[in-house]
């Protein structure tokens, strides 16, 4: 502070500003996906047949693979934070790099999945189920990309001379990243699995 005042004191809630704001933002994100899931449930109930046989056309194997990739990335993210807090910068870089790699892996699998759909002439406008499928997974993928941008920034910074030593920021980003994983945890059964294969 320039004038020696102590107006900017410790956060009252003991939660750092950025982390608190991230939680508030995540509450908002939950509502964003609430809009989609709510709409999905409604239109599913009025188009049961359609949803059932459309879901059967999705590639469950790729989705399963992607679930594993995201869970793995959540773990590496958590470990990278843990290591940075311990001051273990080498492992921090390793795990953060792995997380980014997982993000790329997820996106690559997603691309393969999409292109298979396009090859089978399945597009967002094919029917309501696929509209939901492309919009929800699309928004999820955008979230993955949005998380990877600051992650890459931190990763590159970590290799500079100064290094990157802001555990709270990494933790905040981690919250976001786990949330993206969480959304997928629900997308996976809702879109791919819970329609029995008649």
């Amino acid at each position: 502070m320039s004038s020696g005042l102590s107006l900017a004191h410790e956060p009252v809630t003991k939660v750092p500003h950025g982390k608190l704001a991230m939680w508030i933002f995540l509450a908002s994100e939950i509502m964003f996906f609430t809009g989609f899931f709510g709409a999905f449930i409604v239109l599913r109930n009025s188009n049961l047949e359609l949803f059932s046989h459309s879901a059967a056309e999705l590639t469950k194997g790729l989705a399963l693979l992607n679930t594993f990739i995201l869970i793995g990335s959540s773990l590496t993210m958590a470990l990278s934070i843990l290591n940075l807090e311990k001051g273990n910068t080498g492992k921090f870089k390793l795990f953060l790099g792995l997380t980014i790699l997982c993000g790329f892996g997820f996106l690559i699998v997603k691309t393969i999945e999409y292109s298979t759909k396009f090859n089978h002439h399945i597009f967002p406008w094919t029917n309501v189920f696929f509209s939901f499928y492309f919009l929800m997974t699309g928004f999820h993928a955008i979230h993955v990309i949005a998380g990877m941008i600051p992650m890459t920034y931190m990763f590159i910074k970590a290799f500079t001379k100064k290094g990157y030593n802001h555990p709270v920021k990494v933790e905040t980003l981690g919250l976001y990243w786990h949330f993206v994983d969480l959304v997928w945890i629900f997308l996976f059964p809702v879109l791919y699995l819970i329609f029995p294969a008649h």
Binding site: V15, L20, M31, G38, I41, N45
Partner: peptide, 25 residues
Amino acid sequence: FDNKFIRAFVFVPIFLFFVLTFALN
């Protein structure tokens, strides 16, 4: 581990999720 009040940021939206889907259905 965190301050308990943060749980509100999870539970309130989940409550609203149920309100919305209930009404929509």
